[in-house]
Structure formats: structure tokens, C-alpha cells
Design a protein around this nucleic acid. Structure first.
Lengths: 192, 192
DNA sequence: TGACAATCGGACCATCGGTCCGTATTCTGA
DNA sequence: TCAGAATACGGACCGATGGTCCGATTGTCA
């Protein structure tokens, strides 16, 4: 892999920032077109697509930036998110942390989960697979292996972006209401 | 409201059938265009859109037809789905029945939930609201009122079309595997 | 049967994601 | 420092899609 040219790097950054900003300030992610992003970034459309391939990938990159801190915390941070945490607490902390990120970045997360498209696949995305796998392993000792997988899916289903968005905008729940209810639910799911 | 003209009625039926068939036989709902449906129904595009307004509504109508039997069972059928059923069992039966419908009509259900679009809203669709409300009321006596709402969302989150689709196609679970796991989960959620 | 209203149908439109290629910029190494 | 190769740029362009419009057609009712 060659070194990235200076203008290329500059443009990549500009695109990422423009996209992040546009998604964050628009009502619905689908209202943000690739042309919009290119224009906002002061870049040609060709550049945008050469860098990121397609819309889905661009969204994922933006998402990855926002998610990096959490990912790092989980992979190698201190308790309660890091590896040196008893499974039960760690699962709870991870679910809560993901919920917080999604609540704080509702727009982006919606864009990602909405990405659907033909060859759909929230459940096939690397991020989902990774966190599902982690959760599954964490609860596997307590529940059976197959049950563990189900439980992991179930926990994640409760913090899908559109559901959280509905709870906030449609039912007027506050972020802390949601986190509290979620905590109860997780506790009830994990503790016999 | 005037009587519907004969040709109008005929065309509505043709469109509904064509759409149902196309969604059922295509891999991904988004591969089925409105032109495809119009052509398959032997009808002009204008007719299609005058009858159904937009894509989302058409899909919902098709969905409504498929769902009618279940809806009727729940509203006025015999136990375990109908009103003369103890809440606990009724909830369980309803969740199972919905799961079965979704598993049997994966394509259509995907089309519906994917419908997303700008003014998104699985959680705002009449069907979701109705079933959520029913479940909420059914569990309200046992749990608090606000917890009841959360639990209803949670139960429904576990039987979302894309999740079920992933379990089948991505993890190779059989329909009965899924129903069994789901039964366990519902039981665990509802029984202390 | 005639005449009016409702319906039909497909050409047409705007927009979107994505591609292409002539031009401009950056890098290299002598 | 500079020339030439390599790479990136950008916007015109493309095919497809959801949705609209309006002259032609068909059903209805007296």
C-alpha cells in the first residue's frame, strides 16, 4: 500500500467531517444525498466515490470514527467496560454504553441501520457481529451456548436506533428514563 | 364515498395480487420496482399510484391482506389468541403467532420494515401501534404501566423481520428452533 | 343510446447513487 | 530545481426509480 497523497488525505478528512455534520443536522438520513455531502465538503462527486466506494461504506466510516472511543474502552479499557470486569457487569455496562452512544448520535445510527438496501444486513455488519459475539461469549457460561446467542440478539434488539428514537421522539422518554428501564430489563434478562 | 367502478375494483385486485406475488418470489423487496408491479398487474403506472398513493402504502395494503386472518383471530377469535384468554397465555400466543406469520412471509415483512424512507416509522405504523398497545395493556396488570410499555416493545423487538431473517438465513436456525427459543424468552420475560 | 364523469395508461419529470475520463496536482529522483 | 510519471480531481453523464400529468378510454345511468 502506497502512501496517501496530501490532497487525498485532506479530502478524505473534509468528506468525513461534512458527512458527519450533515447527518447530524438533518432530520432524516435519507434526506442527505451524496451530492450534498460532496458539495458540503467542497469536493467533486467522483472524489467522494473513489474514496469511499459507496454510500453504505461512507456511513460506516463516519460511524467508525464516532464509535472508536467506545470500541477502545471495551477492547482494552478499565472496568466496567474493559476485559477486567466480571461478565455480568460488563454486559450491563456495554449495553448501557452502546445505548448512550446511539442516543447521543441518533441521526448517524439511524443512517447506518437504515442503510438496508438490497444486500441488506445490520446483522451482517462487522460491528454487529463483533458485539454480538462478545456478548454471546460473556453470557455463555451462565446460559447454554445457543441460548447465549439468542440473549445477545435480544439485548441488542432493545437498543436499536429506531426503537430508541421512537422512545425519545414518539413517547417522550428522557435519556435517563430509557437507561433506567434498560438497566432493569438487562438485569431481569441476565439474573434468574 | 361513491361506489367503486368495476374496472377500478378489478385493477385494485390485480395489483394487490401481482405485488404479493412479486414480493414473495424476489430475493429482496427493494428489487421489486413499482414499474414491475404495474407491468405484472397489466396496468398502467398511473393507475397503480392513483389507487395506492405511494409505495409504502401499497406494501401496507398487501401486508394487511396477509395479516387479516391473524388480526381477526386476535380481535374476536377463540383462545389462545382471542379475548377470552388469560393475559399471560394470550401474550405468549400472540407473539408466537406473529413470529409464524413473519417467518412464513419473510419477503413481505422485510419489505414493510425496510420501507423506512424519509418519514420513517415502523414504530408509528398503525399495526405496530395497535399490537404494542394490546400487549402493553395485557401485561400492565402484572408490571407497572411504564414497564409494561417497555416490555411490549421488547417482545416485539425480538420478532422483527430482519432479525428473524438473519436467524434463519444467517445462523441456520429452523422455524421450530426459533419458536422454541422465543417461547423461552417470552416466558422468562413474563414470569418472575 | 348518448353524454358525462371517473378511470386508465404510459410518456414524462426530478432525483439519486454511481461511473468515466480529460485535466490538474502531487510526488520523485537526478 | 525541474521534468515527467503517477495519482487524484471533479463534474458531465448514465440508468433506474418513485411519482405526476393529461389526453384517450371506459363504465354508468337516464
Amino acid at each position: 500500500m502506497q502512501e496517501e497523497r496530501a490532497d487525498a488525505a485532506r479530502n478524505r478528512k473534509a468528506i468525513l467531517e461534512a458527512a458527519d455534520d450533515l447527518f447530524a443536522t438533518s432530520d432524516s438520513p435519507s434526506e442527505v444525498s451524496m451530492d450534498d455531502i460532496a458539495r458540503a465538503a467542497g469536493v467533486g462527486k467522483g472524489t467522494l466515490f473513489r474514496r469511499f466506494g459507496d454510500r453504505r461504506n461512507l456511513i460506516q466510516q463516519v460511524y467508525a470514527v464516532r464509535l472508536a472511543p467506545l470500541r477502545e474502552q471495551i477492547e482494552s479499557g478499565p472496568p466496567p467496560l474493559g476485559p477486567d470486569t466480571p461478565p455480568r457487569e460488563r454486559v450491563s455496562a456495554i449495553i448501557d454504553a452502546i445505548a448512550v452512544v446511539k442516543l447521543d448520535n441518533a441521526h448517524l445510527m439511524l443512517a447506518l441501520e437504515e442503510g438496508s438496501g438490497p444486500t441488506n444486513g445490520l446483522h451482517k455488519s462487522p460491528d454487529y457481529v463483533a458485539v454480538h459475539g462478545l456478548l454471546r461469549d460473556l453470557v455463555a457460561s451462565k446460559f447454554g451456548k445457543s441460548r447465549a446467542s439468542w440473549i445477545a440478539h435480544s439485548l441488542l434488539a432493545n437498543i436499536r436506533a429506531d426503537l430508541l428514537g421512537h422512545l425519545v421522539k414518539g413517547e417522550g422518554m428522557s435519556h435517563s428514563d430509557i437507561r433506567l428501564s434498560l438497566r432493569d430489563f438487562v438485569a431481569h434478562t441476565l439474573d434468574y
